[in-house]
C-alpha cells in the first residue's frame, strides 16, 4: 500500500443465495470496517437479489492450502476406497441399501 493514499483493507465476500444452501465465495471488496464491508458487498455482489445472507472476512485472515502441494496434502484420502459405498459387495436381491 502506498503511503500517500489508501484504498482501505481488503475483504473476501461469501454469499448464501437461498436458505439452507452454503455460503459461496463471490469475490472481494475494500472497506474500512465490518459494516462498510457488508454494505459494499451487498452493493457489489447482490444487485439482482443474488443473496439472502452475506459473510465478510478480512482477506489476510484466511489460511489456504497450496495448489502445488495438492498431491501430498490430500494423499491421506487416496488409499481409502473403503470409504465409498461402491467398495462393498451387496448380495443380489437385497433391496433399499
Amino acid at each position: 500500500m502506498s503511503t500517500t493514499d489508501n484504498q482501505l483493507p481488503l475483504w473476501e465476500v461469501f454469499i448464501q443465495s437461498k436458505s439452507g444452501t452454503p455460503h459461496k465465495h463471490a469475490g472481494s471488496i475494500h472497506a474500512s470496517d465490518k459494516n462498510m464491508a457488508l454494505e459494499n458487498a451487498r452493493d457489489i455482489y447482490t444487485r439482482r437479489g443474488e443473496g439472502r445472507n452475506i459473510w465478510v472476512v478480512l482477506s489476510d485472515q484466511i489460511a489456504a492450502s497450496k495448489t502445488e502441494d495438492e498431491a501430498e496434502f490430500f494423499d491421506p484420502a487416496d488409499d481409502k476406497v473403503y470409504r465409498h459405498p461402491s467398495f462393498y459387495k451387496v448380495p443380489d436381491g437385497v433391496k433399499n441399501m
Binding site: 500500500m1 502506498s2 493514499d5 489508501n6 484504498q7 469475490g27 472481494s28 471488496i29 475494500h30 457489489i44
Partner: peptide, 27 residues
C-alpha cells in the same frame, strides 16, 4: 452505470489477486 462500476470493482479485485494494489492501478 451502477453495473459498470461493479464490473470495474470485480476486475480490480481479480487484478489484485496477482499482487498489484488498487492504489498502484489507479496511479
Amino acid at each position: 452505470i451502477q453495473d459498470e462500476g461493479g464490473h470495474g470493482l470485480y476486475l480490480y479485485s481479480a487484478a489484485e489477486t496477482l499482487g498489484i494494489s488498487r492504489d498502484e492501478m489507479i496511479e
